[in-house]
């Protein structure tokens, strides 16, 4: 059985994920996460499995090529300055 997740843990994870939550969302998620995480607990029954990944790297020569021009890259930004994205102050 999982220890039911606490409201405090939900707030902590939301802070890590940079998603603000309203108080009623915290309550709702706390309740729902308890159910969902308890269900995820059944993964404990899964045996360790040999994983033979059949993977190959895909490489190409590092050649110069056209990319999106600056104007097109900036056209969806909420704020720009001198051809750069402009974000909020870091602190």
């Amino acid at each position: 059985m999982s220890d039911a997740v606490s409201a405090e843990e939900v707030r902590h994870v939301a802070e890590l994920a940079r998603v603000d939550l309203a108080d009623d969302e915290v309550d709702q998620f706390t309740r729902q996460f308890a159910d969902i995480l308890e269900y995820f607990e059944t993964l404990d029954e899964v045996p360790e499995v040999d994983r033979e990944a059949d993977l190959t790297n895909v490489m190409r020569p590092d050649e110069e090529r056209d990319s999106l021009d600056r104007e097109a890259a900036l056209e969806n930004a909420s704020e720009t300055e001198d051809g750069y994205f402009k974000g909020p102050n870091v602190s």
Binding site: A14, E15, A17, R18, V19, D20, L21, A22, G87, P88, N89, V90, S91
Partner: peptide, 12 residues
């Protein structure tokens, strides 16, 4: 707000 506060609010 600062970067983190605006980021979290935008996503909310």
């Amino acid at each position: 707000g600062n970067w983190n506060e605006r980021f979290a609010q935008t996503r909310k």
